[in-house]
Simulated scan of single mutants.
Amino acid sequence: MNNGFHEPSRRAQDLVAFLRDRYAEQRRAAVEQRMQHWQREVAELNAKQAVVDNCERWSLAADEAGRRIAGMSAAGVGVAPAEALEAARLEGCATAMVHVVAMLALPYQRHPGYREAWRPPPLP
């Protein structure tokens, strides 16, 4: 299994927590300011939150699959090819979701809690 398997998962968890806090702040600000279009603003934030929630689910699933296969390998139990393929698929999907969440976090790059390590790679 990839030596850096858990690092994207940790990054995803940190990004998810960061974005949850930012979106909660924005929701509170929209309601407090009684903006004309606050319902649209809140709906947009809820859609972004759904992406963040999905990232969290993929990240946790990929992390668990990797742990299970690593445990089976360490115990000398043969790992079925289907399980290895499923773990690789989950890892790939989780990594893709981390990139999506990293893009969602870019507007907050000047926030004191933003980490430079979250910055997505530049586009080719």
Rank of each mutant, 00 (worst) to 15 (best):
5 F>D: 10
104 L>Y: 00
46 N>E: 13
96 A>I: 01
105 A>C: 01
93 C>L: 14
69 I>A: 10
26 Q>F: 12
39 Q>V: 03
67 R>Q: 12
63 D>Q: 10
49 Q>S: 14
69 I>E: 05
14 D>H: 11
10 R>D: 10
81 P>I: 03
80 A>P: 05
52 V>T: 05
21 D>I: 11
62 A>Y: 04
78 G>L: 06
85 L>N: 13
1 M>Q: 09
106 L>S: 06
50 A>G: 09
48 K>S: 09
14 D>I: 07
22 R>A: 14
16 V>K: 09
109 Q>R: 12
84 A>K: 08
34 R>P: 01
75 A>S: 13
119 R>D: 02
7 E>Q: 15
82 A>D: 06
42 V>C: 02
78 G>H: 04
74 A>P: 01
43 A>P: 04
81 P>G: 00
89 R>K: 07
33 Q>W: 02
61 A>Y: 13
110 R>E: 13
122 P>H: 06
116 E>H: 10
84 A>S: 07
30 A>L: 06
117 A>G: 13
67 R>I: 12
3 N>P: 15
115 R>G: 05
80 A>K: 08
6 H>G: 15
89 R>D: 09
78 G>W: 01
110 R>V: 13
69 I>H: 05
65 A>N: 04
87 A>W: 07
54 N>K: 08
86 E>N: 06
103 M>S: 14
37 H>L: 10
23 Y>S: 06
100 V>L: 11
68 R>S: 13
102 A>N: 00
12 A>P: 03
79 V>I: 03
49 Q>R: 09
54 N>L: 11
117 A>W: 07
79 V>Y: 00
11 R>Y: 08
119 R>Q: 10
8 P>W: 06
53 D>M: 09
41 E>V: 15
100 V>I: 10
2 N>S: 13
124 P>T: 04
107 P>K: 00
52 V>S: 07
105 A>D: 00
98 V>P: 02
72 M>S: 14
21 D>N: 13
34 R>Q: 07
124 P>V: 06
3 N>C: 10
90 L>W: 01
37 H>D: 11
56 E>Q: 06
102 A>E: 00
33 Q>G: 15
76 G>T: 01
13 Q>W: 12
45 L>N: 06
98 V>K: 09
41 E>I: 11
13 Q>G: 15
36 Q>A: 12
7 E>I: 15
9 S>D: 14
75 A>M: 09
